[in-house]
Structure formats: C-alpha cells, structure tokens
Design a protein around this nucleic acid. Sequence first.
DNA 1: AACCTGCCTTGACATTGGTCAATTTAGCTA
DNA 2: TAGCTAAATTGACCAATGTCAAGGCAGGTT
Lengths: 248, 248
Amino acid sequence: MIKTNTKSDIFQTIKDLDLFKGCEDSFFQNLTNQSQFLPLKKNQILFLHEESATRFFIIKRGWIKLFRETFDGTQAVIDILTTGHIFGETAIFDKDIYPYSAEAAEPAEVISLPLSVLKSELETNSKLALKMLSEMAQHRKIQDKELEHRTIQNASQRIGCFLLRLTNQEASGNVTIHLPYDKTLVASRLGMQPETFSRALKKLKAETGIEIKGATIFLESLSQLSNYSCAACSSEFPCRDLKSGTAG
Amino acid sequence: MIKTNTKSDIFQTIKDLDLFKGCEDSFFQNLTNQSQFLPLKKNQILFLHEESATRFFIIKRGWIKLFRETFDGTQAVIDILTTGHIFGETAIFDKDIYPYSAEAAEPAEVISLPLSVLKSELETNSKLALKMLSEMAQHRKIQDKELEHRTIQNASQRIGCFLLRLTNQEASGNVTIHLPYDKTLVASRLGMQPETFSRALKKLKAETGIEIKGATIFLESLSQLSNYSCAACSSEFPCRDLKSGTAG
DNA sequence: AACCTGCCTTGACATTGGTCAATTTAGCTA
DNA sequence: TAGCTAAATTGACCAATGTCAAGGCAGGTT
C-alpha cells in the first residue's frame, strides 16, 4: 500500500511535472524539504486574493476553484483545476501577492511548496524559464479563446464546448461524459447562473439529441456536439489547445 | 527634422523598449538589420490567424486591432494596442503560428522584426526570458480581469471602466478624455454592439453626470466614474495594473 | 454649397439570460 | 425507511442586450 503523503511521494510528484522536466534533483529536493501535504475539505479556502504569498501549489487530487470577488460578494470564477496543475505560482511576478483566491471545489489534496525556491531556480535555470514562458503563452491563448467564447457563443454552445473539452477529441463513435463537479460550479465556470445552465443544457439536448442522465451525458458521436458548438468558435473542431483545467 | 523610418530610428525605438532593457547592442543591431518599417492604412491587414509566422511587430504610431473570427465572419476583438506595444511575438511558443489576426484600426506605423532573432536571444539571455515571463504573467492577470468584467459588469460599467483606464488615475479634479478610436471599435473591444454602446454611454451619463461631446468626455472628478464602475470589480479603484492597450 | 460616405444614434421589437420563489430530486445520515 | 440537506429543476417574470431598419450628423470632396 502506497502512502500518498510521504516526502518521497512528493518528490516523485514534482519530478514528474512537465513544467519541471530537465531540472536537477537538488531542486526537487529543496522543494520537497519545505513541502507540505494538505488535505482539503470541500469549500475549504486555501488563500485569498491580494494576500501576501510565500507558497505555490500542485494539485494531487480533486478540484480547485480559482476565483475573485467584489466587495458585495459577487463572484467570478477564473478557472477550475485538477490533478497535475499548478497554481499560485504567478505571485512571483506580482510583488508576491496572489492574483486570485483559491478554494477546494471538491475534497482535494494539494502539495504546498515555497515560492522562494522556485524563484531562485528560475533565475539560474533558463530552461525552466523558457518552459514556463511557453506554458504561459499557451495559457494566454486559452484565455483569449475563453473571452471569445463569452462574446460569440450562447449558453448552450458554451456547455457543448465545455463537454467536448472533457473528451478525447480523437474518439469516434459513442462517448460517455461525466461532469467532474457540481452543475452549479460548471455554470459559474462558464459564466452563467445555475438556472440558465439547467435550461441551456435542456436546449442543447433538444438541438443535438444528446442523452442526459444526472451528471452523465451520452453522445452518439462527437460531431453531434461539435457541429453545434464549434460553429461559433474561431477554431476548427479538434481543438487540441483547449483542454480544460489547463490554467495555473 | 527627424525621419522616423530610418534604421537608426528603429534601433533606438527597440532599445527603448522596457521588455528589452538590459539587452546588448548586438541584439538590437541584429534586429534592426532585418527590420522593416511599415506604414499601414486604416483597416489594412497585417497578418491572419493561423498563418505561419516569421516576424513580430512593434507599434510606432496608431492603433492595431487583434482579433479572431469564426467561419461565418463573426468577429471577436482580443485587444487594441498602441505605441510601444509588441504583438505577434507569442507565435514563438506556438509552432510559429499567429494566434490571432492583426489589422490597423487607424492609420498606423509598425516595425516588423524577425522572430528568429528574438527566439535565439531568448535561449541565451535569461534576463530577457525572465522579463518576458514577468510581462506575460502581468498580461495574464489583465486577461483574468477582462473576463471577470464581462461576467459581472454591465455595458455602462464596462464603458466607465474603459474610460478610467485611459486616464492618469492619480489625477484630481477635472479630467478630459478623448476616445482613441471609433466608438464602433470601442464597442467591439468591450464585447458589445455599437447600438448597445451608444445607449449604454447615454445611461452612463445619466447615472454619473459626465459630459459627452462627440468623442470627448468631461469629468468633474474620477470618482464620478469609479464609484459607478468599480463597484462591480474585484479591484480597488486606482487599478494600476489595468492600463489599457497593455497586451502583446 | 451640394453631396457623399461612414459613423453614430434612435426606435421598435426579439431574444437571451438573470432573478425570485416554489418544488423536486438525490445523496446522506440517523 | 424516514428525514435532512444541498443541488437541480421549473415557472413566472423582468432586465439587459442584440437585431433590424430608418434617420441624422460630420468630415471630406468636388
């Protein structure tokens, strides 16, 4: 039986990250030495927007919601991330202030690591800097597309697009999709109210003939959705660059 | 009389860029040697989304619109940039493919530079990589906020926010703002129809008491607008990080 | 001055999505 | 199983924005 919260497991998890590919073991060791394993209950807050930052995080399991809110409590969801994704690291470039709040959308486990170690590694390891730069540029493109979608896709199309991004887009034939978290949360991720989500999903079903049973959706083929959703997008269908949960 | 399209002027323009601060003259010289000065007429297209990229650009004068469009011609404006801003450079990180289209929103002058030189400089100059990484992270935060605004601000509030970002936010007392380009374009920049823009501006006037004369807007004070617009934003008013035209 | 042309505004109306309140459903726990 | 709670759905209504069509205005040209 493997324990998932040992230091050696943390070491291995960090080492396996694509972002850190090619880094020295000493770097991983430094990070690991100052690491913490954090189990999070649903809705548990990890840090708040504008808070001073000393640590960044890697998701081991579950879903983390990044968001910001206005004074009156209105909330805007920035992204919802899962296993293998990093967040909080951009504070390095912004006066060590977190640019968003983070909370567990579902029970989750994250690894907490010191920003200082990452920061000094970045200054000496140009491979890492370039890799991070590349991921950042990728993310930027995704953000641009997100904004585009808010502008030109309606609620049903956005849901269809979201579902497609949960699948292997090369698949042919029947596909079963399971929503990864609450519908309410999917709604906020897509910038709409839960009621709108509910009705828009129903409309999506009527327009495309998909089957819905609770949080599970059955497709006869991906084109059933892509014909409907991708018409209102600037990219061709298999949209390789738009995997969901890809932010940091 | 200074000519603005000489090689030596290009050299100086590049050297003055914040992004390139600290780079060697040899780098500037390499860029300059392969540079081109391009005067652009209004609506002239510079490159198209998905096109193969060999050059990036720096704006010398005027306004450049970055956008993408769907098959049926619906257009989503990503950003509108002006003097001193760089664009097209992120193609380096995306298989040398432009992630958006670019055209002159107003008569403009841009300097065209080879991506190859930038690319190899990035690989050897870690200061530059870090600086670019930092700017990218900054941009990312701006994009997040842009998305937030689309979600929680209404049309009038977005216009107010846009106007505030055109000003020196430390100013006290009277302020005169001049719209930098067509209202139609401002509308698309803010993700709304021209008709909606027109009505929303009227509403903004009614709600805040600003004065409007054509493309010129008079404020008695910035708080007149900030009270109205920034209520629906997660940031406090003087929002230093949200300068307009800040993308690349 | 007359006339274009493109931008902007306005009105009338359609559509989309948001809000509020009432139920229904599903998953837990006792 | 009964009962609790949170999530999801539904209906009725409203507000915001988009669409289409008609004018109006301003700047540039002849």
